[in-house]
Design a protein around this nucleic acid. Sequence first.
DNA 1: GTGTGGTGTATGGTATACCAAAGACCACAA
DNA 2: TTGTGGTCTTTGGTATACCATACACCACAC
Lengths: 228, 228
Amino acid sequence: MADTQLNIAPIGEGLSLKARAYDALKTAITNMNIYADDAELRLDERDLSQRFGVSRTPLREALAQLDQEGLVKIVARRGIFIVRKTKAEILDMITVWAALESMAARLATQHASDSELARLHTLVDQFSQDKVAAKMGEYSDANIKFHQAIIGLGKNQLIADLTDKLFFHVRSIRQRTIFEQDRAKRSVVDHSEIVNALEARDTERAERLVREHTLRLRDHVERYVTLD
Amino acid sequence: MADTQLNIAPIGEGLSLKARAYDALKTAITNMNIYADDAELRLDERDLSQRFGVSRTPLREALAQLDQEGLVKIVARRGIFIVRKTKAEILDMITVWAALESMAARLATQHASDSELARLHTLVDQFSQDKVAAKMGEYSDANIKFHQAIIGLGKNQLIADLTDKLFFHVRSIRQRTIFEQDRAKRSVVDHSEIVNALEARDTERAERLVREHTLRLRDHVERYVTLD
DNA sequence: GTGTGGTGTATGGTATACCAAAGACCACAA
DNA sequence: TTGTGGTCTTTGGTATACCATACACCACAC
């Protein structure tokens, strides 16, 4: 059945070229193992421009944004480079994450509804301490989701936005370390205690547990993870 | 005495046009009372371009950055507007500030040297509880400096960077409210207790005091300050 | 008199041409 | 053979011309 209307082709998906370039670059960088020795960290503006099919201007705006977020570094007349975070920077990020998520937990005890907290509970209940090893992939996702859920329940948009920007880095570290040294088991226990504190509306305890949980990740990374 | 050398004029001050446009815009917005009823919140790209003497491209990049930082909002085909933060957003910012500064305080108890903490002490000692009213202007500055100093002692660059971005908004609120309802006196006491906790290397107490101090500001704003 | 449609204008968005600087490479001279 | 200089190439930086859209205003018809 042929269209009776003209039905002009949708040129873009509604997003600006800048936004699309930004998304494409971000996912490309995200899916790349930038710590491999042979990783090509140099980006070529003109090459990218051709490959995305957009001109350099919107591309540069997207790159400028990534630069500000710290994913790439633009050096005048030298090039654009994907940034390898130093270990110290990763540690700082995890520390900031701890500060923000623990504050979100504090807020959650004050502002989240019982039903919202109950939903959090179901996230935790899916994994018992001993079954975790059997379904690593799933737990790795569930682990991330749990932390994002707490942040959501804090109902502070700024915290959500800031952690979103850190997420890219923190996620990869969380996934990389969750199954080292029995950390998954410990994680299950921690999460369960956190939920209990939240449901008990125990503000101080919830805050402390979340902070300690994430700072433990920090210590683990400091001791055992090698970057650079 | 005429130059024997050619001595070509220094064209720029070394900064890129984008960076200069950014600085100029930021200070311009900072020094403007955007809450006045007759404030002109609309920015004209071409007009600004002429007034700064740069073309639209670097100007737009600067504006895009301000947009991302939330100082202005760019609406496609509508214009660029200076953002009036809503009260809710201000409250969220103060909350985030509390989370970050309290974490910085925690870190300071672990990583700051005795002499660094002693210097902090001198910042506090300049103002006794009853003399504060006499030199309001000075105290207002000292108050801000105190908080920045704690953040510096946390030695987490990311915390410093993030609070820097919030600073613009939080500073104006701090200055606006510090002399309401005897808050200055309370502030002096708080600061002194915070320094004591830091010097005693009492991590938990320092963190808690800083958090509570800033959350009190948050409550004060929520109750007594009218924006929008 | 009111409503609708079309046109004009202002404003961002995009593409492209050109500029400037830094580094690599090569030729030539000592 | 080695060092110095200049040039060429690569890359980002800047300016500008052009395009698309949203809104306002006005004319015309009902």
